[in-house]
Design a protein around this nucleic acid. Sequence first.
DNA 1: AATACTTACAAAATCGATTTAGCACAGGTG
DNA 2: CACCTGTGCTAAATCGATTTTGTAAGTATT
Lengths: 338, 338
Amino acid sequence: MKRLTLKDVARMAGVAPSTVSFVLNGKAKQMRIRDEVAQKIMSVVNQSGYEPHRVAVNLRTGQSKTLGLIVESISGSFFASLARTIETEAERLGYNVVYCSTENNAEKGGELIRMLGRQMVDGYLITPAPGMENEIRRLLQMHKPVVLMDSYFPGIKAPYVLIDNFHGVQLGMDHLFERGYRKIGYVTVDVSLIQLAERQRSYTQALKKKDIPFRKKRVLELNYHDSREQNLATLEAFIQENSDMDAIFFATNYLGILGLEAMGRLKISMPKHMAAICFDDHDIFRLYPPGITVIEQPIEGIAAKAISLLMKQLDKQSGPLRESQVALPGRLIVRSST
Amino acid sequence: MKRLTLKDVARMAGVAPSTVSFVLNGKAKQMRIRDEVAQKIMSVVNQSGYEPHRVAVNLRTGQSKTLGLIVESISGSFFASLARTIETEAERLGYNVVYCSTENNAEKGGELIRMLGRQMVDGYLITPAPGMENEIRRLLQMHKPVVLMDSYFPGIKAPYVLIDNFHGVQLGMDHLFERGYRKIGYVTVDVSLIQLAERQRSYTQALKKKDIPFRKKRVLELNYHDSREQNLATLEAFIQENSDMDAIFFATNYLGILGLEAMGRLKISMPKHMAAICFDDHDIFRLYPPGITVIEQPIEGIAAKAISLLMKQLDKQSGPLRESQVALPGRLIVRSST
DNA sequence: AATACTTACAAAATCGATTTAGCACAGGTG
DNA sequence: CACCTGTGCTAAATCGATTTTGTAAGTATT
């Protein structure tokens, strides 16, 4: 009950192993194999149920047919949707996916990339976190196919796919304006991610567009390294000090969830006392009464586009492609918090 | 800038490739390599930063050093915690993990297992779903190392690790009794999973223990194949028909979340009008006011134990081990819904 | 002194594929 | 008839490791 090998198939078909290989890899024409022989081989293959040994193929060709997906946290909802789409897309194209999470740990990020390198993945899909710059640069230098998602590093010329952060915040702000909110606060976090900067820029811009003066007091930048409890306290204080605010814009879903908890504790009911809107959807925002209005990321679109960019790099190493930067529009989901 | 191979190292150290291999694989003593030579080789290896080509090793030894983790849904919170622990544990032992989700699709489950087989994973960690019986039997017949998690099939002798479902429900019921609840409803779903049967048995048993008559009307079995909306409606009807109930026990966190929504719609406030308790924790239960009391699964424990059982099978194929069945105790987390 | 047995490595086979080079035969050309 | 050109396949090299077998030199045994 051993595994069937190419050799076995060749023997059964009465030809040489190389011939079988040619036929199976679609090089029958090129190698001038007679149709008769090719058909004979195919029938033997089908009847015996032979399948090539992936490891052997990998060793010989140097192609593992595996992609590495590196995300911040494997338990995040962003990852969940991303992984699903990427996996099905990859499978369709004959690739497997290996997931890795950095767990918000820059060191581990580098280690992971190296680990995947040892594993010989053919390409990388990465949601970059601060501290991974050098590793990503190294990959590019080695001409490894890479696509960044969700974020990018301004100094590094790698292809990336993300939501149009500026546009997304504009959508949200316009919605708030439309509903009559004017005293809009903004809660963000002090991580140096380009998308956070972009979102904040968009917030300021939106105010300016409406001739509403920007007030520093209305913006809270939480400290990433502080504990959850600490941040919750800071957030509560911020809300109390800005008791005249009529709406808060949360820059990430983590912040939004924190916001729900803070407002819950302060017995502030949405949208009566204060409206809330959050960038990036989450299960909780759908379920938590009264339902939180959000800007939803086009995660499936991001995943699909990222895969397609990666495949373009894998097909032919000729294409430099270093300049493919894509921003997809987000979607406003109006719930009852605004 | 090509990859360093064993041959290169051998040349640099002035020995044969086989000698290097022996030293690197700890067979220096056995093969009577002089300490001098071994040290020389080690120093060359360290200085050159040589690392064996995993694919080549895999081909030669037949060990991929990869485990397959098959779960129902990659986006579930159960999976999230599971994956984290399993991945770190596996890494510590020099193994990689490939994740796959069946997405509640029996067909896909079988396909996945076959796919992993082609990939040549060394062992399988599976959260079994109905319909996967045959595939799992096949794996056992092929003497592939397998460990089931979270559930199992009564007819199949495979090692498994799960929460002690009976004990878990008892914990919850005892807690409800202690708080004075007596008219306790039970909501479950009609999937033929052993753990659901076990939980329901425990519910009935708990009532009997307290001499509370079992009332069929108090138990709702939702239809798995019905739509979410449909189930929500059924659940609402159930709650209204049992308006004298003082508490509801939800058998899974999916049901619990549905329950939150139903009670929200009916404007039933917890725990004033009705208490709620749920088997299996979820982020939402922590955040949703007033916080839902749950029985938490010892997910990390399950993962760790599962890995260790799998490793035992991988170490020596001699141990049959088919009878290792482990049930770990759950933990009651009291929040304000009871 | 011939034989056997260790020691300490080297050589070669092997895993299962892909790919390059080669080879026998048929037909066409000068 | 020698020479070239296609055909249609096979033989052998290759990927990078592991593992079995081989072997030269030194020591012990009879």
